[in-house]
Design a protein around this nucleic acid. Structure first.
Lengths: 335, 335
DNA sequence: CTGAAAGCGCTTACAG
DNA sequence: CTGAAAGCGCTTACAG
């Protein structure tokens, strides 16, 4: 077993002081070129790497950032994490992952951990329960401890921090407009996330797009059986001609229910879903969907945080960044 | 802005030494009950929490573990991470996430990072490229630095470390047996991961289950268009009656292709897929699948690692743990 | 150009 | 029962 070599050991081998070694490795102009060379050579030979924990203690930085993820099984969040991780690597930062499972108590625990100095900054998508109960006090602890926070995706929340997400309202407004422009009269919406900020925004986009003379049809429930019933009612009784889905679950429910009721997509029903290509393209028929570019959101979130880590006091203003979505047309919106 | 209070500051406020405060907070019997009480009270008042970086430096532990994930968009791995994170929380460990994107060079970089002292141990699922090239040297660095490693999921690899995964061979053997017992003659397999260890094991299970007089039918490609063609050939020319799929992609391809060719599932074709319930149950028809319990794999991996972290030298033998799978019957295997 | 010293925030063996 | 000292591995202002 190899054991990690330390500055002290290098110094002894070279018959110089620890300070000289440290300075040499940092290319300090104080040190003679000859010494620098000797030191670096030996360091390389022994594959010396500074102990990050010691460096962190000295600099009172941890060199890591925390990411709070509400639900990692959601491919969207998994991909956001991927974007964060890639950008963090580029910046030389480590990513510590925390999963709240959409629960407020877990989120509080996590934030408590975070304030004890594990991380230099935090990226957060706020849990569902937290949003439902509107209890944001714990986040102010982070602010008080001067730990920069960036909210990602779930940004429709009144906290004085940087934010990055998509324009949920516009995406659904545009998708609804599309149906209207094709002359459809009865346009519905299915959602299992109507209590989330992002869900509300999407519903608002849909409603705003509908002219006053057009009725809204909304099937909403976070309980699968109920959602399924409401979708069935929309399809059979309301006889909607098109439906927008705000999330993966509702999209799959619409797909399955239409099939069971022998309602043909796209002939009898146009569908715009919210899911990733991996699934959308292989359904039969394939389902058009709103593409979100989660990796970009992750990368952007990391960049916003990195800016704060560099010169926090200088920039007082918080910024909000929006990543555009795109409606990807597959078979379910063929007219 | 609150700033974190240190031992030194507490000591000054209390007019005692830093050592006394530290000992009191650890309930040392050396300290008088009265002092312990005073110290704890003030610590609580100021919400004192020890600086983890300093504690780590002292103990030469980092209190964190690394997890290498080949592809986080794969729900299986996302859920494994969830299991790891939950167990790590319970054990008071932090999880640093690294994503290799199935690439050898990224994996090498990550391992390099890991050997510089960021983590106390590592959980690894080896990347696809690494397995293809059979280049495992970089992992031996971890072993040399005495950093415990646990392989999860992709465990069919000859490295002297603890492992946890599923019994891929048996799962596919049993699923194949099921079809045989129902009197089916032509049983095929579709895969996009035949170059991965787990893929090979699944194929072996399928082959082993088939009696000598039965032909094998295998559609394999990691390129979607090619896989699609091969599946089409199996369905149209070979006229297989049942098909096993080793992964999400091949399952979706079979589902979609059967639909396009107007081959009815399950009447004309029985299907056992490899995917998660979230999707499987909402397809039309729903697709029976092999359930893997990824959270359990994550939890088990973390536990194996925790054991090593506690008493590494004592236990020389490496262990291999298998988490049972279960065939979940939905509509695609109705006889 | 080199090195001794102080210090980051903690823990713990040792002295009193 | 309390405290001074050493040390974890580094960095850096200061002295020589």
């Amino acid at each position: 077993m190899k054991t990690k070599i330390t500055l002290k050991e290098l110094a002894k081998l070279l018959n110089v002081s620890v300070s000289t070694v440290s300075k040499a490795l940092h290319d300090s102009p104080e040190i003679s070129p000859k010494t620098v060379e000797r030191v670096k050579e030996l360091a390389k030979l022994h594959n010396y790497r500074p102990n990050p924990v010691a460096v962190n203690l000295k600099s009172s930085k941890s060199g890591t950032i925390g990411v709070i993820i509400p639900n990692i099984s959601n491919t969207f969040f998994a991909k956001v994490l991927s974007g964060i991780e890639a950008e963090a690597q580029r910046l030389g930062l480590q990513v510590i992952t925390y999963i709240s499972n959409e629960r407020l108590d877990r989120e509080k625990q996590i934030v408590d951990r975070l304030t004890s100095g594990f991380v230099d900054g935090v990226l957060i998508a706020i849990s569902e329960e937290t949003q439902r109960k509107k209890e944001y006090d714990h986040f102010y602890n982070l602010v008080e401890y001067d730990i920069p926070v960036v909210l990602y995706d779930r940004i429709n929340i009144n906290l004085p921090v940087d934010k990055i997400g998509i324009d949920d309202e516009r995406a659904f407004d545009e998708a609804t407009q599309l149906f209207i422009s094709k002359g459809l009269e009865k346009i519905g919406l299915a959602t299992s996330i109507h209590h989330l900020g992002v869900g509300k925004m999407r519903i608002t986009g849909y409603k705003n797009a509908l002219p006053n003379d057009k009725k809204t049809f909304i099937a909403n429930s976070s309980r699968p059986e109920i959602l399924r019933e409401k979708i069935e009612k929309m399809l059979l009784k309301d006889k909607i001609e098109a439906v927008l889905c705000t999330d993966f679950e509702s999209t799959m429910q619409v797909y399955r229910t239409a099939h069971e009721l022998k309602i043909k997509i796209p002939e009898d029903l146009k569908v715009v879903g919210f899911m990733n290509k991996n699934v959308a393209a292989f359904l039969a028929p394939s389902i058009s969907y709103i593409e979100q570019f989660p990796e970009k959101i992750g990368q952007g979130a990391m960049d916003l945080l990195a800016r704060r880590l560099q010169n926090y006091p200088k920039e007082a203003m918080t910024s909000e960044k929006i990543i555009s979505t795109r409606l990807e047309h597959l078979e379910s919106t063929v007219f």
